[in-house]
C-alpha cells in the first residue's frame, strides 16, 4: 500500500484480520460486513477500525471522493456464493463503480 494512503474502506472486513494490517501500518479504516457475528468478533478483539453492519449489494452509503483506498477480500465471491444481497444480479453488479466513487481520484 502506498505510504500516502491514510484512510481506507475494508469491505467484507469480517473479524478484522485484514483491518489489523491496515492499522499496523499506521492507517485508518472503515470496515463493512453483513455478518453481525463476525463484526462482534472484531469488537471483542478490540480492532482499531470503525465497523458498519451493511450489505455491499445495497451500496456503501459512504460519501464520494473520501477514501484513499479500498480493500475487498472475498467480497465478490461471497456475494455470488452466499447470495445475501437482496435481488442480487451479477449482470448488474456495480460494485467496482461504487468503490471508484468512494475513492479519491489521484
Amino acid at each position: 500500500m502506498p505510504q500516502n494512503f491514510l484512510y481506507c474502506s475494508n469491505s467484507g472486513c469480517g473479524s478484522g484480520l485484514s483491518g489489523e494490517t491496515i492499522s499496523e501500518n499506521g492507517h485508518h479504516w472503515i470496515g463493512l460486513d453483513i455478518l453481525a457475528s463476525m463484526l462482534n468478533v472484531a469488537v471483542e478483539r478490540e480492532i482499531e477500525g470503525d465497523l458498519l453492519l451493511g450489505d455491499m449489494g445495497q451500496g456503501l452509503g459512504i460519501c464520494p471522493e473520501v477514501m484513499d483506498g479500498a480493500i475487498n477480500i472475498s467480497v465478490v465471491q461471497a456475494l455470488q456464493t452466499v447470495g445475501n444481497s437482496l435481488n442480487f444480479n451479477p449482470s448488474k453488479l456495480t460494485l467496482s463503480n461504487r468503490l471508484k466513487i468512494s475513492i479519491r481520484s489521484p
Partner: peptide, 14 residues
C-alpha cells in the same frame, strides 16, 4: 449497538 451502526436496508428501501 456496541459501536456498530446497522445500515442494512429493508427490502422496500433498496
Amino acid at each position: 449497538s456496541k459501536g456498530i451502526p446497522n445500515m442494512l436496508l429493508h427490502e422496500d428501501e433498496v
